[in-house]
Write a protein that binds this DNA or RNA. Structure first.
Length: 278
DNA sequence: AGTCTAGCCTGGGAGC
DNA sequence: TGCTCCCAGGCTAGAC
């Protein structure tokens, strides 16, 4: 499940493999994933374009080309790889960009949830899904005060609020559980009940958890690999996610799995007490 | 305006 | 063995 650390790792590995390559042809086998423009126009526009660089905004990858920006979201299972044209193709390959040097950028995605948008270069941040994003966790505009104010104004549960990419961008279901565990805050606490000190903890741990996960190349829970086929290692140091039934590393109590707005949530009820049960 | 829910997808595992 | 059901979950459109 690519969250910020996984997407950042994909960006770094892909940049090494694909920067400077020029697109000779594009094969779209699952047109529904091309959201803008239509698949035919998408394909035609990309021919002759060279990959200048690759950026990231939240969980979105942004390929900077000569005249366009290609915005890709991997959602749950999306993966990029660079292969020689003669390499056997993995199942669930939905888009293939063939370069002039007979290598290919391949996008595969078992669940077909991923999306691609093409915009004129320089206008990518006007795309609706990018425009609404809140600050990057490593940006100075993401402050404890900003977080506290946003949480004060919401009646949503704190985990739901943190998953909304408007307060801070990049957290997903794995890292938000870890951040709240490190902050000793129960995910079901209502946003407006979070104190200033708790907001400071959540702010600090959002940054530290995501930074450590980037250093470790992300977390491989089920299938995630970077664009060189390598797994991450942050799953080795997860405290709560995926550890239901195991003992809490801090207090020994059993990690419990519950649900937050339909999403699986992992919590130590001793370290993260819920003063006001719903 | 803020919040909630269904839908998008498929593979893997549990239960019968 | 083979069937059905449920789960994984980021994001968006539409409803309330």
């Amino acid at each position: 499940m690519p969250e910020l650390p996984e997407v950042e790792t994909v960006r770094r590995t892909l940049l090494e493999l694909a920067a400077g390559k020029t697109i000779a042809s594009v094969d779209v086998r699952w047109p529904k994933m091309i959201k803008q423009p239509e698949a035919d126009a998408f394909r035609d526009a990309l021919i002759g374009e060279t990959i200048q660089s690759i950026d990231r905004r939240g969980k979105f990858l942004i390929f900077q080309l000569d005249h366009y920006a290609l915005i890709s979201h991997l959602r749950m299972e999306g993966k990029f790889s660079v292969n020689h044209s003669s390499d056997p193709e993995a199942p669930h390959t939905h888009v293939v960009f063939t370069f002039t040097d007979n290598t290919e950028l391949r996008y595969r995605d078992v669940r077909k949830f991923g999306t691609m948008h093409l915009t004129a270069k320089g206008t990518e941040h006007e795309l609706a899904s990018l425009r609404v994003l809140g600050p990057e966790p490593f940006d100075e505009r993401f402050t404890a005060e900003h977080l506290y104010e946003k949480l004060q104004k919401t009646s949503r549960q704190v985990k739901t609020a943190l998953l909304d990419q408007i307060i801070v961008t990049g957290l997903g279901n794995i890292y938000v559980d870890e951040v709240l565990f490190r902050s000793r805050v129960h995910p079901h606490r209502l946003g407006r009940t979070i104190t200033k000190n708790e907001a400071r903890d959540i702010h600090q741990h959002t940054i530290s958890v995501l930074a450590e996960a980037v250093e470790r190349g992300g977390s491989t829970i089920r299938t995630y690999v970077n664009s060189q086929g390598q797994k991450g290692t942050f799953q080795e140091v997860l405290n709560v996610y995926g550890r239901a039934g195991e003992a809490c590393v801090e207090c020994g109590a059993e990690i419990v799995k519950t649900k937050t707005g339909g999403r699986g949530t992992h919590v130590c009820l001793h370290c993260q007490p819920l003063e006001h049960p719903l």
